[in-house]
């Protein structure tokens, strides 16, 4: 956890959850994205941990607060409690283990059952560096993603291939959704619970508020 986790220098705060089977590389994807670190022997995640990184999308500072979860099935009841208020989710599988890909269905269902309706979801096939051990064809995963309207990227937390891109795509998708709703609603959002303090406060709707209103106004 770095100090940035607790700073206020941002226009938007997006809560994103990272889910998927145990050992697919969720924690390393997160550390690659937030601190550009990778540790092949990083400890298993017990329960829920989080880290943040602020990136700029279309001139706005967006703080992505990413909650990393334990992959073992028995933790699901606990980790799903953290889906609350998430505007984005990444379902991660390991391209060299077909079982982790097959479980993505369960994870998607878990998400649909517990998260808000319009959460943006990305599917990530991690460990693309293990091409010689590939067990999940890219085309198949791509199909699955488009059928379920998910973003899709294959990444490697080890050699950092596509990691930034995957997170950026998701964050941009959320941002576009949020800003679209913002225009639709002409909302001035002043929800104290999630709006950032500082000069942007009166101009910036919280993702949370937009999300809530959007479920009734759009689609």
């Amino acid at each position: 956890m770095n100090n940035e986790d607790y700073g206020y220098d941002y226009d938007y705060l997006f809560k994103i959850v990272l889910i998927g089977d145990s050992g697919v590389g969720k924690s390393n994807l997160l550390s690659r994205f937030t601190t550009n670190e990778f540790n092949i022997e990083s400890k298993s995640t017990i329960g829920v941990e989080f880290a943040t990184r602020t990136i700029e999308v279309e001139g706005k500072k967006i703080k992505a607060q990413i909650w990393d979860t334990a992959g073992q099935e028995r933790y699901r009841a606990i980790t799903s409690a953290y889906y609350r208020g998430a505007v984005g989710a990444l379902i991660v599988y390991d391209i060299s283990k077909s079982g982790t890909y097959e479980n993505c269905n369960h994870w998607l269902k878990e998400l649909r059952d517990n998260a808000d309706d319009n959460v943006a979801v990305g599917l990530i096939g991690n460990k693309s560096d293990l091409a010689h051990l590939r067990a999940v064809p890219t085309a198949e995963a791509k199909n699955f993603a488009s059928e379920n309207e998910l973003l899709f990227t294959e990444t490697s937390a080890l050699n950092s291939e596509n990691v930034d891109q995957a997170f950026r795509e998701l964050i941009t998708a959320i941002y576009q959704m949020v800003s679209k709703h913002q225009v639709d609603l002409g909302d001035s959002g002043n929800n104290a619970a999630a709006a950032p303090k500082g000069p942007t406060i009166s101009l910036t709707p919280t993702p949370n508020e937009n999300k809530k209103s959007s479920s009734s106004n759009c689609c």
Partner: peptide
């Protein structure tokens, strides 16, 4: 102190309490 600083930094109260307790009780 952390509570006051972070009250608007999280999507909901459980998230915030989780975060500040984990931060303080490292």
């Amino acid at each position: 102190m952390e509570y006051d600083l972070n009250v608007a930094n999280f999507e909901n109260i459980p998230d915030m309490v989780h975060a500040i307790i984990q931060k303080v009780i490292l």
